[in-house]
Design a protein around this nucleic acid. Structure first.
Length: 581
RNA sequence: CGGGGCGUGGCGCAGUCCGGUAGCGCACCUGCUUUGGGAGCAGGGGGUCGCCGGUUCAAAUCCGGCCGCCCCGACCA
């Protein structure tokens, strides 16, 4: 591509409103443009990268027996009412009406459509297993789109679905996907890791995330370097306990206007961890449940929902007042209403000397002995793990990593097939629900994560496997006919050699070209300058290392070919090593 | 949804407090010079100052409402 004919509108100045590095580079490098909050146009340069990512995904999905579909993005609301997810998704889904007034939505995911096809077409165990996938635009009306394409409202997802006759079949399909995902991310040149995860709105029995470490990410993972325990913070546990202390008589103390953990612990001179945080939540059926966690920690809502057996919402201040008889900030488990389910974090088990709200405005109680003073229904892990706590598996201190979620795989089971009536007949002529799995990859996030992981202050350094072009051809001075002649000739030769070249044939200062070349970050750059004219060489600059070598004119094509092939082969070898099984 | 910030030529910003000729840099067009890390000189084009309403002789500027975008939080596969 000649830059004079191409459309890569790079910016000279930093764009406003782009905080994370991938967003900044995408705007500055002329790769994306904003249309509305969380809605982006992908310009040709980035789109070439995204097409390469999609091609790698296709190859790996096809390799595990996946069949590519294209499901409709426009879905009837009725179908989503059948699974209950029209309500579950709430405001996060875009809804509209057709001309007849029928409710429709723009699909945020496709379990329902897959289930609908399956229930009409899958009759027998002989039809199974199936692996269906698509690469398609998804719509989610995120409450707060942010960080450029990392959390947008319209984005490209590879989603796939396994249909099986049994849990064992599902396990196989799930493992095939895990391997394919490892190969995909490895081939895209990413350093990634895997973590156990929460299945959230998807439901089901197991799930795992593929993550890339990066400050711009929204996920946090608890990692043990000693034993390899890696869990998303949402489901992570640790081995940590509050020191029990010594028992004493329960005492009510006046704590006027002291509501927060900080205020109360400072006022009473009690360590925050001994101050028991009492959080009232409401179940879907509006039943109250109280969760107790040490004041030093936050409640892990995923774990709370798991133990409560369903979705929860924090009780609003009025409900708290009605149920507990005191304002938020002064409620506690001591003297709670009869029958209130109280679930405590394991770290509090055996606590002899704690403090908490007295269920009376402006009062707290001290010397609380949990066993003696509180009717705890259950002890379980409920707290968000903090860095340095002992690993639940091996006891060594854990780290916490901020990361970008690239992919997520779920064992769904029969949740959707049952609600949709997607069944098959087994060998015994018995009608059974299809066992499903679902698996997603955020396509733009791969490009963004590559930037977060590999950019420097000048721009991105693309992995060769997904780089929009292989090489940046840069004649230093367009008014020097010798240079232009040499560059033109190289351009033709590189093309003929099957290489993708971005040829900067603009008549601008060399410095401008260098800046753009660094920003756009192709793996190699060829400087065609006067210096090499006499000796018949060009400068070959490796973007990632800045290493510069002189390459004789006639060896340019094989040099580039070799460098690109070697880098990609390295990713392929890595993919082979880590894919497993 | 709560908190904060912002909205002025294509881009980045000043001007708003204290009302009175819309400005700067970059980009763009023409010409000349220049050409290895975002060139110089000369000339030129381009703006309903987010929208609606109000106050005023007069509003980018003051007041009210609305919209949009960004950040933090809540939320979120």
């Amino acid at each position: 591509m000649r830059l004079t004919k191409g459309f890569i509108p790079t910016l000279k100045e930093d764009p406003s409103g782009a905080e994370v590095i991938s967003h900044r580079i995408m705007l500055k490098g002329g790769m994306v443009r904003l249309l509305a909050a969380g809605v982006y146009s992908y310009l040709p340069f980035l789109w070439k990268c995204l097409l390469k990512v999609q091609q790698i995904i296709r190859e790996e999905m096809n390799a595990i027996g996946g069949q590519e579909f294209l499901f409709p993005a426009l879905n009837p609301l009725d179908l989503w009412d059948e699974t209950g997810r029209n309500a579950d998704f709430g405001d996060d889904v875009f809804r509209l009406k057709d001309r007849k007034g029928r409710g429709m939505l723009l699909a945020p995911t496709h379990e329902e459509v897959v289930g609908d096809i399956a229930r009409h077409e899958i009759r027998s165990y002989r039809d199974l297993p199936q692996i269906w996938y698509q690469i398609q635009t998804k719509f989610r009306d995120e409450p707060r789109p942010r960080s450029g394409v990392l959390r947008s409202r319209q984005f490209i997802m590879k989603d796939s679905y396994t249909l099986d006759t049994s849990q064992e079949g599902l396990d196989r399909g799930y493992e095939l996907h895990a391997r394919a995902y490892r190969r995909i991310f490895a081939r895209c040149g990413l350093k990634f890791f895997e973590a156990g995860a929460s299945s959230g709105l998807m439901g089901g029995t197991g799930s795992q995330e593929f993550l890339v470490e990066g400050e711009a990410g929204e996920d946090r993972a608890v990692v043990c370097d000693n034993c390899g325990y890696v869990m998303n913070e949402e489901v992570a546990q640790s081995d940590w306990k509050v020191e029990p202390g010594t028992a004493a008589e329960l005492e009510e103390v006046h704590t006027p206007d002291k509501r927060t953990i900080e205020e109360v612990s400072a006022f009473l001179d009690i360590e925050p961890q001994r101050l028991v945080k009492s959080l009232l939540y409401m179940t879907a059926g509006d039943e109250p449940v109280m969760f107790l966690v040490p004041g030093s920690h936050d409640l892990n809502e995923s774990l709370a929902m798991r133990v409560a057996g369903g979705p929860l919402r924090p009780a609003d201040p009025e409900e708290v007042l009605n149920i507990m008889g005191a304002q938020v900030g002064f409620v506690g488990p001591v003297g709670a209403p009869d029958g209130l389910r109280i679930i405590a974090d394991k770290s509090l088990q055996g606590l002899l000397d704690g403090a908490t709200g007295a269920n009376r405005d402006d009062y707290h109680v001290v010397h609380m002995n949990l066993e003696r003073d509180v009717n705890v229904s259950e002890y379980t892990d409920l707290r968000i793990v903090e860095a340095g706590e002992a690993c639940i598996e091996c006891g060594e201190p854990v780290r916490i990593i901020t990361a970008i979620e690239m992919g997520h795989i779920f064992k769904l089971g029969t949740k959707y097939s049952e609600s949709l009536g997607a069944t098959f007949q087994d060998e015994q002529e018995e009608e059974k629900p299809i066992v499903m799995g679902s698996y997603g990859i955020g396509v733009e996030r791969i490009a963004a994560a590559a930037m977060e992981q590999r950019a420097d202050e000048d721009g991105i350094c693309w992995p060769a496997s997904i780089a929009p072009y292989h090489v940046y051809l840069l004649p230093v001075n367009m008014s020097d006919e010798r240079l232009v002649g040499a560059a033109e000739e190289l351009y033709e030769k590189l093309h003929a050699g099957g290489l993708e070249v971005l040829y900067d044939d603009r008549n601008v200062q060399a410095g401008t070209k260098f800046k753009d070349a660094d920003m756009l970050g192709l793996p190699l750059r060829i400087n065609v300058g006067v210096r090499g004219q006499e000796t018949g060489v060009v400068e070959m600059v490796h973007r990632a290392t800045r290493e510069t070598v002189e390459v004789p004119f006639d060896e340019v094509v094989p040099y580039v070919r070799h460098a690109i092939d070697e880098e990609i082969a390295g990713y392929d070898r890595y993919a082979d090593e880590i894919a497993g099984g």
